[in-house]
Simulated assay, not measured.
Amino acid sequence: MIEILTSDALAPLSHGFFTRKGGASSGIFQGLNCGPGSSDLSEAVAINRARVAAAMDVPPNHLQTVHQVHSADVVTLTEPLTDRPRADAMVTATPGLALGILTADCQPVLFADPQAGVIGAAHAGWRGVKDGVLEATLAAMEALGADRARTTAVIGPCISQAAYEVGPEFLESFLDDDPDHARFFAGGTGDRAMFDLPAFGLARLRAAGIGHAEWTRHCTYADEERFFSYRRTTHRGEADYGRLISVIRL
């Protein structure tokens, strides 16, 4: 059975942060792996994505994803694409298009201005947030008629601060940008620090003037039964990892 997490803040729009439950994949990809870039069987990934499309009540080719590259690039969709452009966010005002973001610790962020009939979805890892992918998504939504003061953004399951250990160079790069970024770090072991990715994402959204922003408070690293995690896979020395999908549609 597929499991879909939702947020009241995005109601009444159809959306969901899908967990790994209910898929056709097996082995280290056990469950609903929706990543075509993984080494999972392509047939299993296709089945999984078709199940997600059905849950969102759209044809499989209307479930749109991009080739994510940790950028701040946004694609505006008016019709289904046959390829996956290199970008990390999508926006649309076209009913029937479902915007899907793939993650395995990074933040999936779903955006909506229901009054304007404009939605967005962003893949927001630390690099993308630092480079402005969230602000770029809001700007692209505004180009379609949205109002950021009326827009809601919900950050889905991602890695939490308790599991996100980083080195001194990582911390220094953030402090070089803004000394106030120290508030997103806590002390770790030795010279390590613990980074609060969702807090950083929420702060950027609120500073950009968004109407409402929240995090579902699910940690991908901590809950193996429900979520894939790149970092957990890395710590175990596994060969690959599954990708979760988060989707919104008009």
Rank of each mutant, 00 (worst) to 15 (best):
I2Y: 02
E3K: 15
P12L: 01
G23L: 13
Q30N: 14
C34A: 15
G35W: 04
P36E: 07
G37Y: 08
E43Q: 12
I47A: 09
N48S: 03
V52C: 05
V58A: 03
P59F: 01
T65Q: 03
H70A: 07
D73L: 08
D73Y: 04
V75G: 02
T76R: 03
T78S: 15
E79I: 00
R84P: 00
R84M: 13
R86L: 13
T92M: 05
A93P: 03
G96W: 02
A98P: 11
A98W: 09
G100R: 00
L102T: 12
D105F: 12
L110C: 14
L110Y: 10
F111S: 05
A112N: 09
A116S: 14
G117T: 10
I119P: 09
G125N: 14
W126I: 04
W126S: 15
K130P: 00
L134M: 07
T137R: 04
G145P: 09
G145C: 11
A149Q: 15
G156D: 02
P157N: 02
C158S: 15
C158A: 14
Q161P: 02
G167E: 11
F170W: 12
F170H: 15
E172D: 13
S173H: 13
F174T: 01
P179K: 05
G188P: 03
G188N: 02
D191Y: 04
D191H: 06
R192H: 13
L197K: 03
L197M: 11
A208R: 01
A208G: 05
G209I: 10
A213E: 06
W215S: 04
C219M: 00
A222G: 02
Y230H: 12
R231W: 10
R231I: 15
R232N: 09
T233N: 14
T234L: 15
T234R: 15
E238Y: 08
Y241C: 14
R249A: 07
R249M: 05
L250Y: 03
